[in-house]
């Protein structure tokens, strides 16, 4: 019974990691860059939601719409201003810029909302059926898991069935060839950031509903863990990010319960290192043979 509860809590926190990891993996897969500021977009999403509910008194779902809208625009602006000029630059320059953007967002948040943590009131507060509540399943957990599955399936459908989704995959493989097809690469990459950032906003609201302390650094640790999860599952792979996120949540919950609360994070990263030693491309990542 206790084990089951740990498992459930692991799956639900893992689902949040998975939603963040899906954003990471989309951006990495298509723009071929690690957007280290992704975690901080989560934090911005949390603050926007907090402000719309606490200061403007609007209902929870409206605040989610607001958070998604603001973060989507933020993601597109960050890409356009910070990353697009570096399209031809080395990956190290891009990485350092991303870290810079991350600090910029954290400091801007501190300037606007202060360093004192805000107490986020969970947006999900419906009662779950008796048999679920006996297992300590809360409404947030349920919503998180369902949201995560829906998002994963939605992205899979989007990238495999829609014209824009396919164009994203084409850009991911060969930007020059994609341009020769008439695909606007800049706009496609911009759309990828829009999607990733919208997911970050949703993750931010869920994360804050889950653990209500909201401060400028709120997004950092979940961001790093979700990045780990994306690599763990095979970066660039949508099902991989999902699997990686959920597994990471479970491993973390188990490590916390049975090994050590303090070492839980270290254990998570140790598992990542071991997996990558055995499978360098991650669990579902694949090497595609190229024919010359």
């Amino acid at each position: 019974m206790v084990f089951l509860q740990y498992l459930i809590s692991g799956i639900s926190i893992g689902s949040i990691y998975a939603i963040i990891a899906l954003g990471y993996t989309m951006v990495y897969g298509i723009a071929k860059m690690l957007n280290f500021a992704h975690g901080d977009v989560i934090m911005v999403g949390g603050y926007i939601s907090f402000c719309t509910t606490s200061y403007l008194g609007l209902p929870g779902w409206v605040s989610v719409v607001f958070a998604v809208a603001v973060c989507t625009v933020l993601g597109v602006v960050i890409e356009g201003l910070a990353y697009r000029p570096l399209r031809q630059a080395g990956s190290l320059a891009v990485l350092i810029t991303a870290i810079g953007v991350s600090y910029l967002l954290q400091n801007a948040a501190q300037l606007i909302w202060g360093a004192t943590p805000k107490n986020f009131t969970s947006l999900v507060n419906f009662a779950v059926p008796e048999f679920l509540s006996r297992l300590n399943v809360s409404g947030v957990m349920l919503v998180t898991v369902v949201a995560c599955i829906v998002i994963m399936l939605g992205l899979t459908w989007f990238t495999s069935r829609t014209k824009l989704g396919k164009a994203m995959r084409a850009c991911s493989e060969d930007r020059g060839a994609a341009q020769l097809m008439g695909i606007n690469v800049n706009r496609t990459i911009s759309m990828t950031f829009a999607i990733g950032s919208a997911l970050a906003a949703i993750a931010g609201v869920l994360l804050c509903s889950y653990s209500p302390v909201l401060q400028p650094t709120t997004g950092s640790m979940p961001g790093i863990k979700a990045f780990t999860a994306a690599v763990f599952g095979g970066i660039g792979s949508i099902p991989g990010a999902f699997l990686g996120g959920v597994l990471l949540g479970i491993i973390e919950a188990m490590a916390r319960a049975y090994l050590s609360t303090n070492l839980a994070n270290s254990i998570v990263f140790a598992v990542l290192i071991i997996v990558l030693l055995v499978r360098p491309a991650g669990l579902l990542g694949k090497y595609v043979p190229e024919k010359v």
């Binding site: 014209k163 995959r169 020769l180």
Partner: peptide, 30 residues
Amino acid sequence: AHKIVARGLAQVPEGRRIFLQMTVEENLEM
């Protein structure tokens, strides 16, 4: 470049550069 194609000028690039991870039909769709 992406607007030149729409004007009716297509190129088959050196080394083919098809999208290797996409299906034949998806390549044609692109």
